[in-house]
Amino acid sequence: MARETVTDPTKKNTNRVVAGVCIAFFGGMIGMAYAAVPLYTMFCQATGYGGTVKRATQQYADRVLDRDITVRFDANTAGVPWEFQPVARSVTIKIGETVQAHFSATNKFDRPFTGRATFNVQPELAGPYFNKVECFCFTDTTLKPGESLDMPVVFYVDPDIVNVPELKDLKTITLSYTMFPVDKNKPVASSAPAQSTNKVPNTEASLGG
């Protein structure tokens, strides 16, 4: 005669609790993974960490120094079928002066396409002192087939940069953008790797408000 197996109710409940904890932990890890990228981006934009440009909380610096600094511009694409480039290769400004530069983009694809720009500066230590007041990179951009768009960026270099020993003699900052496709786009048939498209005339960017 077969022996009956007696199940311990306490052990059964314990197994259920352990299983529930494991599922909750696994779900939490997935949620953290999805949240990590936007949270990291917000952290970088707020602090300038890793060369990420800060988003300015005010339109003007508290002072303008009688000292020039040159800002060079770089534009790249990664899977976006656009021609994307700065209107001017560089601009020389006063530290603390609010200026406006322009980038241009043209959709070379046969349907509307949405892109989003990431950005940073070199050297990385200058990130916390490079402040953007307005920028096309703050929002997604959608272009119709063949459509071109002027994309301005308004910025200033914080005068406190001269108080940093490693940056006190800095003469040049490079502001670099890379345009990526937004998720809602359908896959492009052939996406080229990131490549520089900054073939522009060697003229200075226009200054403005």
Rank of each mutant, 00 (worst) to 15 (best):
G28M: 10
T10S: 13
R111D: 15
A75Q: 00
I93F: 04
L207H: 10
S206Q: 14
L65S: 08
L167F: 12
G96E: 03
V80W: 00
M32N: 15
F155E: 04
T10A: 09
V18I: 15
L39F: 11
A35Y: 14
R63Y: 12
D8L: 14
I173A: 11
F113A: 02
T5E: 11
S148W: 03
V21G: 02
N13D: 01
R67F: 02
S176K: 06
Y129M: 06
T142Y: 06
K94H: 13
F155G: 04
Y40T: 12
G20E: 07
P112K: 07
I161K: 03
L149C: 07
G115W: 01
T52L: 08
D183F: 03
L125D: 09
I30R: 12
F109D: 12
T174S: 10
P181K: 00
A19V: 10
L175W: 05
G28R: 10
C137R: 04
K108C: 05
I23K: 01
P38G: 01
E166K: 15
A75F: 02
V99P: 05
T47K: 09
V37H: 06
E124V: 14
L39Y: 05
K132S: 14
N13T: 08
A192N: 14
M42E: 08
R116W: 05
D169S: 13
D62C: 08
R72K: 15
G20C: 07
T178G: 02
T114S: 12
L125E: 13
R67Q: 11
P9M: 03
Q100E: 15
I95E: 01
S190C: 10
T178K: 10
A192L: 12
A192S: 06
V91S: 02
C22Q: 04
C22D: 11
T70I: 08
R63A: 07
F43G: 00
